[in-house]
Design a protein around this nucleic acid. Sequence first.
RNA 1: GGAGAAAUGGCAGAGUGGUCGAUCGCGGUAGUCUUGAAAACUAUUGACUGUAAUAGGUCCGGGGGUUCGAAUCCCUCUUUCUCCGCCA
Length: 422
Amino acid sequence: MLQLNIIRDNKDEIIRRLTKKNFKVEIIDQVISIDADRRKTQAELDAIKAEGNIISKQVGELMKAGKKAEADDLKNKSIALKESEKSLQNSLNKFEEETYQLLVLIPNLANDQVPAGKTPEENKIVFTHGEIPTLPANAKPHWELASQYDLIDFELGNKITGAGFPVYKGKMARLQRALINFFLDRATAAGYLEIQPPILINKDSGFGTGQLPDKEGQMYHCGVDDLYLIPTAEVPITNIYRDVILKAEDFPVMNCGYTPCFRREAGSYGSDVRGLNRLHQFDKVELVQLAHPSKSYDVLEQMREYVAGLLKDLELPFRTLLLCGGDMSFASAMTYDMEVFSAAQKKWLEVSSVSNFESFQANRLKLRFREGTEKPQLAHTLNGSALALPRICAALLENNQTPDGIRIPQVLRSYTGFDIIN
RNA sequence: GGAGAAAUGGCAGAGUGGUCGAUCGCGGUAGUCUUGAAAACUAUUGACUGUAAUAGGUCCGGGGGUUCGAAUCCCUCUUUCUCCGCCA
């Protein structure tokens, strides 16, 4: 959520940067106009309250002095004030509600480095690494390899739960556990504090990171207790810092966490959801950083390079995209997507998304920091996947298939305890 | 799940209807003293909103109510603690 006073004071720049995100900017004028009404009403209400406060104080003094009749006069005056107070309060509430309803519709501003564009085709490829493997003509997609080596049972998951909840078995289960440990060890070595958060969250947390109220349908909801299954560890980890005032010297705050993630993914279909490409439950290690506003773009680059390092070590060909304005998420100011090439499907699969939210989330979270004795100001939040497992597994299976089995990258062997799946 | 107690500023802890946004202490900040530091002493020290700047308004776990006036009374929710029960 953008800060109202910034919209008020920098209208032209706000409009310019929102246009890049293909946002209809008429809302900005509406917000500013309703806010003006709101502040006028607030001033009137405050004046009446001030008067009421003075009267109450005088009543107290008169009562103490035993002047009951005079006190009663003032009481009546105060009761009369209550009427106008009530009606002003009602219109104030109305203005506040209207302002809020508009504010939550406004996406974050795109950073100036973000390329213009509306569709994924207009994303900018900023980096590519690794050779695209040339597989033999009879190379198999990962779902066939999974069944050939008895690694993943999609039917069984269907029986236990439903589509999109696969069952991993034997060496595949072990490979996933190895990946989780590898990712966590690397993150910890890079300075991230490992967090094991709850995977059910309440409404306040969903609101803090922006899943609620708009994207309610994308989360699984436990009705009896009114809790949501997390779509990503970003939600519980970032919410650790809701309503917190940090000290400037606390930066950078670096957290990482492994969690299962749950996504309803309503409306998805076709070859995009085949095999491991898109699931309702999957595992992910997530990075969250809180940064000083002057440093957050350095942190973004640092996180991007960190994720690239993981992919290099996993020996996977990948590319980094700088998302164009139209393809970025609602809350992001700048996002890099990392995609690995899955050689049998001949597809680029997104395995990580690294974003700087600037103060957009922090404003909702009331996540602030204090510089010396100055007033608190909003911190910047960033996060990135490092990494999401299923698509990494898809690429590992497909790219490393040989007639003798599936080769495990060197860096994982101490974690898996085997070097080939056969 | 049952019974009882509690929730106040960074921490600790007063305050049971009228100058209480809140005593005192610790911590923090600034100053005095000192070559410097410590100690001591003095002052200062919450957030939100709002104004050109003052002023003003709101906040004592959350929400609602009573009252001219509530941290203080009432209702309700949440959380924590103690005891009992159950349990990995």
